[in-house]
Every structure is written in C-alpha cells, then in structure tokens.
Amino acid sequence: MYDAPQVTKQETAVTDVKIQASDVQVYYGGNHAIKDVSVAIDDKTVTAFIGPSGCGKSTFLRCLNRMNDTIDICRVTGDIRIDGEDIYDKRVDPVQLRAKVGMVFQKPNPFPKSIYDNIAYGPRIHGMARNKAELDEIVEKALRRGAIWDEVKDRLDAPGTGLSGGQQQRLCIARAVATEPEVLLMDEPCSALDPIATAQVEELIDELRQNYAVVIVTHSMQQAARVSQKTAFFHLGNLVEYDDTSKIFTNPEDSRTESYITGRIG
C-alpha cells in the first residue's frame, strides 16, 4: 500500500505533459486561423500534426515558440503552458523561450557561414561556452546528435550551404539541439528532401525522442505513422482528433479523420 503512489509517480514521469495548450485561438487580421485548440503534448514523445494544407497545423506549431510574434497581423489568445508556465505571459521574453523550444524549418536554412559557426552561433549568443574548448565540445556533441558528425568532421570550416539538402537539414537539426532545448518543433522537415535523406532524418527524429519532446508537422501520413507516438489531426483550423498514432491510423473516432487518412479529403 505504501509503495503504490511511487509506482504511479514513475508512470507519470514517463508520460509527463510538456506542453499544455488550452482554447488557443489565432487570428491573421480578420481570418480566424486556429479555433479552440486544446492539446497536451507529452515529453520524450514524437507528436505529429497532420492535416490538409491550410488547416493551421504549422500556425499552431509556430505558436509554441512564439514565432508568430514576428508577424504583425497575427494575434494569439488562449493559454499555452510549457512545464506549467504560460509562454504568452507578459514577463516571458520570446528570445529565452526560443532557446528552450528549438525549431527546424521546412526548407533547410543553414547560415551562409561555416559548418562550425552554424552550430556554434546559438551557444555563443546564449553564453553556453566559456572557452573555445568547451565550444568545440558543444559543436561536436550537437553534430553527433544531428547524426552528421562523421560526414562533416573533416570540413568544419566548409560553408554549411555547400552540403547536400539532407545534410543541410541534419545540420539545422544539430544547430537547433546545440542550444540544449527541451522541445523541438519541426515544420515539415523532410518536404524538401529525397527518400534517402528523409529516412536518415526520420531515424534521427526517433533518436531525438530520448531527450526531447518533438513536435513534427508533416504532410505525409506514412511519415506520421512511422515516427510519431501521438498524432493530432487538424482540419480547417480545428483540432479534430488527438490520440495515439496507432489509434488514429487504425481506428479513428471522427469521420473526417478517417476520410483524410484514407485519402478522401485533403
């Protein structure tokens, strides 16, 4: 009897809620882009956002690190909490938030600098290294986590833009993890990649799950099925269904989800 609470505690530790969003609304000018979205994203889990183009999945993803702040006409209401803290609180500096919530974009976007500088930029501006040796260590660790170390270790001074598309995207992932984020947001990270590079990135995402809460927006339902444990289906700005990936793809509750995954809408 005395041991019972401890067991429960351990279970919650495994499926800890990292991000809790409630009643999120997003407006682009007069356009109501996200309607009443509430979702709980687990830590150390890959959560996939799927849905047809323009359904708001990317918009919602960008709410999670307040990238929407950079768009003047965008307005976000509702409540998004990371580890219980409201990220839209007036006291929260979006710059600090983005160090904690890393992001990987649709198109690989390395800086036109060397591979080393691409990775080192984040740690530098956040003052994570006290000297060159520490920075070197951080860069190597990030590149190893990005599963690209072996390919670039001999040419860290080469420009990041000279890598192939798949390598560039893994470099961007490495760059995102270099700042030691807790959440990693990925906005269609494989849409510009060929199948082989996609497979490499997917494998990487699966590894990243050990350390981060990963949220991935994807157009490919196969990809969602392959990499994620949880899937959220968005349609016309609504969160239609959110459940375990296996359940969504085998036994969806909503008819719209079923239509989408069987290819009838989208």
Partner: peptide, 27 residues
C-alpha cells in the same frame, strides 16, 4: 535577404537585433 535566414536565427533564440546585425546585415 531570404526570410528563412531570419527564421533560422530567431528560431535558435537570437534577439531581433542579433538577427539583424549577425545575419541580415552582413548578407
């Protein structure tokens, strides 16, 4: 200067000014 560069810098937690002076202005 492509917006993706701004996104990349902002995405890893650079401030607006760091984004402009470290990445946009040199380009």
């Amino acid at each position: 200067v492509p917006p993706s560069i701004r996104g990349a810098a902002l995405g890893i937690g650079a401030s607006k000014m760091q984004t402009v002076f470290h990445h946009v202005l040199p380009l």
